[in-house]
Every structure is written in structure tokens, then in C-alpha cells.
């Protein structure tokens, strides 16, 4: 059978590396409002309460919100091009009140670069995750819903993308299609969709033959409408968790690409700043340290939020 072969050839645990949850298709929670003891409880409120129970997730959320605030404020606070030379090169942080985080090897304001870099990072992270989610959900849902040779072919393609080493593939795509933000975003999305596809497939497989889907079929609903309107909302919670974690890995990939000097040269980015400051680690190591801390905090916050979402959305793991 196609199901057993494809699940055997790839390793049985098909979750993203950063989630520790097993891939066993958990019965997905219903997102529609649940009527409990005659009283309607808002699922949104319920979700918030569960999310708030996790202090680490709250810290992550605060950090992410702070980052978003910095990204939004950057063009007002530093209205001019952040890659402009503004002062003496290699000024240490906290020495000149005009440049709180110092200046880099060319005399650019590190604070401005970091603030504008937050915009770049968030944009690429969000859109790459969106790309990955669209591809992943599309592939996974189609594979599971139609089964048979469609499943077989799509899972082989998924395996193909899992086999190609990520960074090497991103570098190739960026090199071949050109160094622009759009291409980096697409490249990152194209390498990160595979866990989402597997998760969606597992969820769809579990839901495909449930009564409510059969009822929809009996009513004569079209395949697309059943997939998008009926199954997908039920399969969504774990997929959302994975997508939020993909944002974190997209941030890491983007920083690596710009660190290697293959990022968009006209855009301020954290990885690029580290790459340029690397030659000066003997005299001015802060040029590398500052943007690195920014990347780390961002990824950390996104991971914490992802874990919090996981706890809040997956009722099976919630009460551990």
C-alpha cells in the first residue's frame, strides 16, 4: 500500500526539528465554538487563557511585539537610509550618545541598521513562512485527500526537497535567480515547506474518512470545498504551530544568506552586518555581537511563541 511504503522510507517522526511532539496524527480539536454545559465558551478566549498559562510563551510574545514595534518605528526614528555613512568608523557602543550601539567599519550607525534590519528580517520571515505554508498545505492536503498515485508522487517530491541540503539549495536559488529580497524569501519558503506538508498530510489522513466528511460527500460537495472548507479548519492548529516555527528558521536562513554576502546589497540586514564586521573581530568585536544578539533574541522569541501555541492549540499535549 502506498501509505505504508511512504511512511517507512522516510523516518517515522516527521515533525519539525523544533517541536518535540510525536507525529502521530492527533485527533484535531474542533475550532468551531464548543457548547459546554449549555454555556457557550469563546474558543478565542479559551485559547488566550491557555496561552497565558505559559510564562515562557508570554515572554516570547512580548519580545516579538517589541520587535514588531521596532520594525514599525524604524522609518520614523531613522528616516534616512540606514546604510548611509554618518560618523567616525568603529565607535564603540555607549561612547557617543548619537550612536547608542556604535558605528561599524564604514561609520554607519549600527542602531539604525539593526532597526531597519528588523523590518527586513520580519518581512522575509513572515512571507517565507506564508510561502512554505501555502505550498506545504497544498501538497499535504492533496496527497492525503486523493491518495493513490497522487500521494505517492507528491510524497516523493517532498522527500526530494528534504534530501537537498537546505542552505546549499538556497544559495543556488539566490545565485541563479539573483540577489533580491523576493528571491531569498521564495528560496527559504521552498526549502522549509516539507514538514508542513507532512503534518498536513497526517492530519488530513486522520480526518479524511470521518463521518462529517462522509456526510459532506453524501451531500454532493465538491472536493475542493470539502478540503478547504471542512477538513482544513480542523487540521489547522498543528499546521499553525509549524508555520510559526518556520518563521524562526526563515530568520536564521536569511541571516546566513546575508552573512555569506549573498543577501540583497541594498537592504539593511543583521546577517550582512555580521558578515561585514567579521574582519574586525580583533579590534571591534561588538559589530558582530550586536546584530547576533538581535537575531538570537528574535529566533528565541519566535520559538517560545511557537511552543506556547503548540501547548495552547494541541489539547493532547496541553496538560502534561
Amino acid at each position: 500500500m502506498s501509505l505504508t511504503t511512504s511512511s517507512l522510507t522516510t523516518s517515522p517522526l516527521a515533525t519539525s526539528p523544533s517541536t518535540t511532539s510525536p507525529a502521530a496524527p492527533a485527533p484535531a480539536p474542533l475550532v468551531t465554538p464548543v457548547v459546554l454545559a449549555g454555556r457557550r465558551r469563546s474558543p478565542v478566549l479559551d485559547f488566550c487563557r491557555r496561552f497565558a498559562r505559559n510564562p515562557a510563551a508570554l515572554v516570547g510574545l512580548v519580545l516579538v511585539l517589541a520587535l514588531v514595534a521596532v520594525a514599525l518605528a524604524a522609518p520614523y526614528y531613522y528616516p534616512r537610509d540606514p546604510l548611509r555613512i554618518v560618523g567616525r568608523p568603529e565607535l564603540w557602543p555607549f561612547t557617543n550618545p548619537r550612536f547608542p550601539l556604535g558605528t561599524d567599519s564604514l561609520g554607519r550607525d549600527i542602531a539604525a541598521v539593526v532597526a531597519h534590519g528588523a523590518r527586513t528580517t520580519l518581512m522575509i520571515g513572515l512571507f517565507a513562512s506564508l510561502t512554505a505554508t501555502l505550498i506545504g498545505v497544498g501538497v499535504g492536503a492533496t496527497a492525503a485527500y486523493f491518495g493513490g498515485w497522487v500521494d505517492e508522487v507528491l510524497m516523493r517530491v517532498t522527500e526530494l526537497f528534504q534530501t537537498v541540503p537546505n542552505i546549499i539549495f538556497i544559495l543556488t536559488v539566490v545565485a541563479v535567480l539573483g540577489q533580491s529580497i523576493g528571491n531569498i524569501t521564495i528560496a527559504v519558503g521552498v526549502v522549509t515547506w516539507t514538514p508542513i506538508a507532512r503534518m498536513t498530510r497526517a492530519e488530513f489522513l486522520a480526518l479524511r474518512d470521518r463521518e462529517f466528511v462522509q456526510a459532506c460527500r453524501a451531500m454532493g460537495m465538491g472536493d475542493v470545498r470539502i478540503m478547504l472548507g471542512e477538513i482544513l479548519p480542523n487540521a489547522l492548529p498543528p499546521v499553525i504551530v509549524l508555520s510559526s516555527l518556520v518563521v524562526a528558521s526563515a530568520v536564521l536562513f536569511e541571516s546566513a544568506v546575508s552573512f555569506l554576502g549573498l543577501g540583497d546589497p541594498n537592504v539593511a540586514s543583521w546577517g550582512g552586518l555580521i558578515g561585514q564586521g567579521r574582519t574586525l573581530i580583533r579590534s571591534s568585536w561588538y559589530i558582530c555581537a550586536v546584530p547576533g544578539v538581535a537575531i538570537m533574541l528574535t529566533v528565541l522569541a519566535l520559538n517560545l511563541v511557537g511552543d506556547g501555541l503548540n501547548d495552547a492549540l494541541n489539547p493532547k499535549l496541553r496538560d502534561r
Binding site: A248, S255, A256, F259, I274, C288, I295, M296, V299, N303
Partner: peptide
């Protein structure tokens, strides 16, 4: 888990 490897390397 959150630190980029290349940055960790430089540090």
C-alpha cells in the same frame, strides 16, 4: 537553539 551557528562560531 536560537543562536545562528555562524555567529556562535565568531563569538
Amino acid at each position: 537553539f536560537a543562536a545562528p551557528t555562524f555567529w556562535l562560531g565568531i563569538m
